[in-house]
Computed example of a mutant assay.
Amino acid sequence: MKKSLIALAVVGAFTSSAFAEGSNVQLYGIIDLGVTHFTGLRPSSGTGTVSSTGLDSGGQSSSRIGLKGSEDLGGGLKAIFQAETGFCAAGTNQNTNGTGGNSNGYCSGGGFMQRTSIVGLTGGFGTVVAGRMNTPLWNDETAADPFGVGLTGNIDNISNVRFASVQRANQTVAYVSPDLMGFTGTAVYFFAPTSATVNLAQGGSTTRAWELNGAYKNGPMFATLDYLRITNINGLTANSSSGNADKHWQVTGGYDFGIAKVTGLYQDLKVDASSGKRTVWMLGASVPVGAGAVLASYGQVKDTISNPDTGNNTAKQYAIGYTYSLSKRTNLYTSYSHISNDTNTALAVGDSSTANLGVAGQSSSGFALGIRHKF
C-alpha cells in the first residue's frame, strides 16, 4: 500500500512540475474486464474439445495505463512523448497459451512500458518520433476492423499482422507528413524490429525493416495503402541465411453512409524462404443502434506459405457483436465469432490478449461479455 501511495505521489509530482513549466501532460488508460467463453481445440488439448470460461482482461481493448504530453518550444515546434504499459486487470487471463496473454505479467506489450515508448518533435514540417510503437500496418488494420482488433471476432485472429508478429516494433524511427487536403504519408525505419537475439560475435546480421504508408481521409471515407519489408529474417548467426525477407502489402478502405459504416481490408504476404504466399481479406460493417452499434465482419485467409501446394489451406471467420455506450468513457460489449479451418489451416478465435492457435481442420467459436472504461 505504501509503495502504491509513493508511486502516485511521484506521478503527481511529475505532472505538477510539468504543468508548472508550461507543458501538457496527461495520465490516461483503459480498464477492460469481461467473461469470455471458448469452444474448440487448442494444440495442447490433444483430441479433446476444450470448453473454457473465465474472467479476462482486455476483451475489447487491452487494459493499459500511460503518460503522454507535449512541450511548446516556440515557433510552432513542440516536443512530444508517450509511455504506455499494459497490465492484467483480472490478475491473469484464462488462456495461458496466448502470445500476449501473460507476457512478463503485463498482458500486452511484452514488458513494462513496452506497449508504446516514444519521444519526438512535431511542427509545420510534420512529426518525427523514435522508440517502440505500433506499425502503421497494424494501425490501419485496427481502423478497418469493425471490432477494432478486439473482442472474439477481431481480424487479428486470421491476419498477416498477427501471423508475422508485426503489431509493434522496436528501435523505430518514423516520419509522418502534415495533412495535405486529407492525405498523409508515413515513412518508417526499424533498426531491430524483433526481439530475437543477434549473435554479432559470430557475424550475425540484425533484422531490419522499412515501411511506407499512404492514407487519405475526407469526411465519411478513408483509404490506406501500406508496404512493409523486413530483411535478414534468419540472419541471427553466421551460419544462417541473411538474405530472406518478408514483404507485406495491405489495402484498407471504408465509407460511412450514416445508417452503416462499411469497411474492407486486403493483405498479401510473401516470404523469400517460401514459394507460397498468404492472402487475407475482410468485409465489415458497423450499424448504429440506439446508444450503441451492431458490429459484423466476414473474412478469409488462404495460406500457401505454411502449406505449399497441398490445397485445403483456407480458414473462414464470421463475427457479430454489439457495444452499448453508458457514457463517453464507459461501454458494455458482447460478441460471438466462429472460425472454420480446412484440413491444412489451424486458426482459432480469440480476443485482443490471446493467441490465434487452433488445430488443423477443426472449428472453434468464442463469446465475450464485458465492460470497458477509459480514463
Rank of each mutant, 00 (worst) to 15 (best):
N234A: 11
T99D: 10
N356D: 11
N24C: 04
S340T: 14
A293S: 13
L347T: 08
G98A: 09
Q60H: 15
A79V: 01
S52M: 10
G75T: 03
A201P: 00
D351I: 05
A355L: 05
G153H: 02
A238F: 09
V50I: 09
V166Q: 07
A368K: 03
S51H: 06
A130W: 02
T39N: 15
T142I: 11
S52Q: 14
A18N: 06
L151W: 01
G254E: 01
S17F: 15
Y298I: 14
D342M: 05
G91V: 13
I31D: 09
Y333V: 06
T345G: 02
V128S: 00
D32H: 09
W210Q: 10
Q82H: 05
G48Y: 14
G185Y: 05
G58L: 04
F163P: 01
G311S: 11
A209G: 04
P220I: 07
I30S: 01
A9N: 14
I118L: 06
E141H: 15
T224M: 13
H373Y: 04
R115S: 10
L357M: 06
N170Q: 11
D246F: 12
V271W: 00
D256V: 03
D268G: 04
V198Q: 09
V173W: 12
V262N: 01
Q362H: 13
D303T: 03
T49C: 04
L369N: 04
F367N: 06
A7L: 10
L326K: 03
G34T: 14
L200Q: 13
G69Q: 01
A215V: 04
T310M: 11
N234S: 14
S70K: 05
D272G: 01
L180I: 15
S327Y: 13
G253R: 08
G258P: 06
D156E: 10
D272R: 06
N344K: 13
S205K: 13
K277R: 12
E71I: 03
N307D: 12
S44H: 07
F19Q: 08
V173I: 15
S364A: 13
I31F: 15
L347M: 07
G182Q: 06
P146A: 11
T231C: 01
G131F: 00
P288Q: 10
R229L: 03
V188E: 04
L326A: 11
A315G: 08
Q202E: 13
G243S: 15
G54T: 06
V349D: 00
V50C: 02
A368G: 12
T224I: 06
W249Q: 14
K328R: 14
G284Q: 05
T15A: 10
T345I: 08
L8C: 09
R168H: 07
N213Q: 12
G243W: 08
S240A: 13
I339Q: 05
D145P: 03
R115A: 05
G34E: 13
N234R: 07
C88M: 09
L265D: 04
S337R: 11
V280D: 02
G290P: 03
Y175I: 12
V128N: 00
N244E: 08
V198H: 09
N244Y: 04
S52G: 02
T186L: 08
N24K: 09
G131L: 00
G111Y: 07
C88K: 03
F19M: 10
M133K: 03
I339G: 01
A83D: 02
I118V: 15
H248D: 07
S63N: 04
A169G: 09
N170L: 11
G69E: 05
K68Q: 10
H373K: 02
A9C: 05
V289G: 09
V10F: 08
